Computed example of a mutant assay.
Amino acid sequence: MFENPKYITCGVQSEIPDALMVLMRQMIAAMQTAQKDYLQVFTLMKTPTGQHIVHEQEQPPYHYELDVPCGDAVNAKVFVIDDLTHSTMLLAEEY
């Protein structure tokens, strides 16, 4: 999963910095789990020093948190959905 063509929605393109989009894709690729769920959830929170990222999936359970320095941090919830032919990154409110 997630090794197919990748797309983003207009909401992601306008609200999420490019570096964070790349980082989230890298976090999916680097997951240490036996299986990846079709739905990956990222909760992005601004911190005084940058960006706090919570990466989760439901089945099998997966949870990873990361803090990175970031001058253009955002508060958002982002879904990455894989339907076996392509994967799409979208804001939760676009679902």
Rank of each mutant, 00 (worst) to 15 (best):
K77M: 04
I53G: 01
I8A: 12
N75S: 13
G50H: 07
M21W: 09
L23V: 11
F42K: 03
L23A: 13
A76G: 04
L44D: 00
F42P: 00
T49N: 10
D37G: 05
A76I: 04
K6A: 09
L90C: 02
D37H: 05
E15I: 08
E94T: 02
D72I: 04
D82M: 06
P60W: 15
S87L: 01
I81R: 02
H63P: 00
C10W: 11
Q26R: 09
D18T: 15
T9D: 07
P69V: 09
P69Q: 11
T9I: 09
L23G: 03
H63T: 03
Y7L: 14
V74Y: 01
E94D: 03
I53P: 00
A92F: 08
R25V: 10
A30Q: 14
L91A: 10
G11D: 11
V54D: 00
P17F: 12
Q40A: 13
G71W: 02
Q26G: 06
E65G: 09
L66V: 08
Q26Y: 05
D82N: 13
M27E: 14
E58V: 07
D67Q: 06
F42H: 01
E65P: 09
I53E: 00
A29S: 07
I81S: 00
V41F: 02
D82F: 06
E65W: 05
I28D: 12
V74F: 02
R25N: 10
Q40R: 07
L66H: 03
Y95N: 02
G11R: 12
V22G: 07
V54P: 00
L66D: 08
H63K: 02
M45E: 08
P61V: 13
V68R: 03
L91K: 12
M27W: 03
Q59L: 12
A76Q: 08
G50V: 05
Q13F: 10
L20F: 07
Q57N: 14
Y64E: 14
V22E: 13
P69C: 09
D72P: 02
A34C: 07
G50S: 06
L44P: 01
Q40C: 12
S14Y: 13
A76V: 04
P17I: 15
L91Y: 09
H52M: 09
Y62K: 00
A30V: 08
S14M: 10
P69W: 04
L20A: 05
K46L: 14
S87F: 00
C70F: 05
L39N: 04
M45T: 13
S87I: 01
E56T: 09
K36A: 02
G11L: 12
M27P: 04
I16L: 15
N75A: 11
T33P: 07
G71V: 03
L66G: 04
E56K: 06
I81F: 02
V78T: 07
F42A: 01
S14E: 12
Q40H: 10
C10N: 15
V12H: 02
D67N: 08
M89A: 03
I16T: 11
Q59C: 09
L90A: 02
V78G: 06
H55S: 03
D83T: 10
A30C: 11
D37E: 11
N75K: 05
L23W: 07
V78E: 05
C10M: 15
K6H: 08
N75T: 14
T33H: 09
M45F: 04
A19W: 15
V68N: 01
M31R: 05
V41T: 07
T47P: 14
V78I: 14
T33R: 06
V78M: 06
T47A: 11
